[in-house]
Amino acid sequence: MARRVTVTQKLGFTALAWGVGMLLFFPILWTVLTSFKTEAEAVASPPSFLFFDWTLENYTEVQHRSNYVRHFLNSVVISLGSTVIGLIIAVPAAWAMAFQPAKRTKDLLMWMLSTKMMPPVGVLVPIYLIFRDLELLDTRLGLTVVLTLIDLPIIVWMLYTYFKEIPGEILEAARMDGAGLWAEIVHVLTPMAVPGIASTLLLNVILAWNEAFWTLNLTAAKAAPLTAFIASYSSPEGLFYAKLSAASTMAIAPILILGWFSQKQLVRGLTFGAVK
């Protein structure tokens, strides 16, 4: 039963919450607005909020000067590639751990999670040297492999918490009916597991898209995804706020939209099921 709240109170909460929400969102909004300004207007004082000559030239300029599309595609390939490969490896493992738990399954899960706690600088040097020797530096393949391994524990965990919720009796029934292991996976489990797999995919694409340690350290120009591409704007020449904003807007827009769809899964995924 909801507590009774007067309309005045509700309006007060509304105003306050919208104010705080807009404040937190403002840097993003400001970036988007600035991306439609000319460079001169971008640094004008006092700043203009809405009444300026809207232009799309920054977007064409960014693409023209630095081949934005290639970096965008690098981001897509690397984040989607690492997630899909991660899922292919993790789905069988999570399935087995959820439905055929052995004595050590719990320890195994904890150990997997513990690999996630290793700070990346602890292995930066050897990975860098190995990549240099294998000529994997600045390649999409190399980065995809690293991100797959980084994501793997989270993917296993997320899938595990989803699979755990699939009632075991259904599997028992399928087995009674003589379904083999393979039939069990394909016909019984997969249809029930699809929502969990989809959420896992979504969350991990977001995490991989924004990953900014390995992408910065292992790529230069060729395979640089958007994180590294944007970082190249940190030592700019001349006026560049509007172009920086255009590049930034394009880099964050797709993932922001995906992210808004995934808020629920986010809590559960990032807390390893500890908060639902």
Binding site: G21, F25, W209, A228, I252, L256, W260
Partner: peptide, 13 residues
Amino acid sequence: LLVIAPFFVMPTV
């Protein structure tokens, strides 16, 4: 949505 948005912005941006 407004409040959660900054979490999805990549660190370099």
